[in-house]
């Protein structure tokens, strides 16, 4: 499953970068995240719970490993999520491109989805992934605005 797009963010790459590395901020970009800690310099671990429509009991243990880190412009992620409802695994690339006073985030992810949610939720996977991405980016945007400008998160 490919998820890709662009999203404007309120700050220059240098400013956004540090915030993106903060697990508390990153957690906002993943809706339903109950816990996210920075286990090592290039590794995050946590727990994420999805709740969309009929699917309310899909909890995943997440491990995100950062690679190809080129501050403050780009990094890649190895994503590994496992749970009773299935798993997701893949890579994502994030690039911050300066634009005016802010940045544009270019993201692309190639994710494998497996297990129960893939087997019985096929009808919704496309919509759900788009929704989670959109929710995540909107939440990230709000959090960034809050941290940078004092606007409510």
């Amino acid at each position: 499953m490919i998820v890709e797009g662009t999203y404007p963010l309120p700050g220059t790459p240098v400013v956004i970068w540090d915030l993106l590395m903060d697990p508390e901020v990153l957690a906002k970009a993943m809706p339903g995240t109950k816990l996210l800690v920075r286990a090592a310099a290039d590794r995050y671990e946590g727990v994420m719970r999805i709740g969309i429509g009929p699917i309310t009991a899909a909890e995943f243990e997440l491990v995100i490993a950062l690679t190809d880190v080129l501050p403050p412009y780009s990094y890649a992620m190895q994503i590994d999520g496992k749970g009773r409802a299935g798993f997701t695994r893949g890579t994502a690339k994030v690039e911050l491109v300066p634009e005016g006073a802010g940045s544009v985030m270019h993201y692309s992810a190639d994710l494998q989805v497996g297990g129960k949610i893939a087997a019985v939720g096929q009808r919704l996977l496309d919509s759900v992934s788009k929704l989670l991405t959109r929710q995540g980016l909107e939440a990230l945007n709000r959090e960034l605005n809050h941290r940078l400008g004092g606007a409510p998160a």
């Binding site: 009929p54 699917i55 309310t56 009991a57 899909a58 409802a85 129960k116 949610i117 019985v120």
Partner: peptide
Amino acid sequence: QSLIPAMNFRLAAP
């Protein structure tokens, strides 16, 4: 008709 199948699949667990 939607809730019970989701519960049977254990995708929903109220």
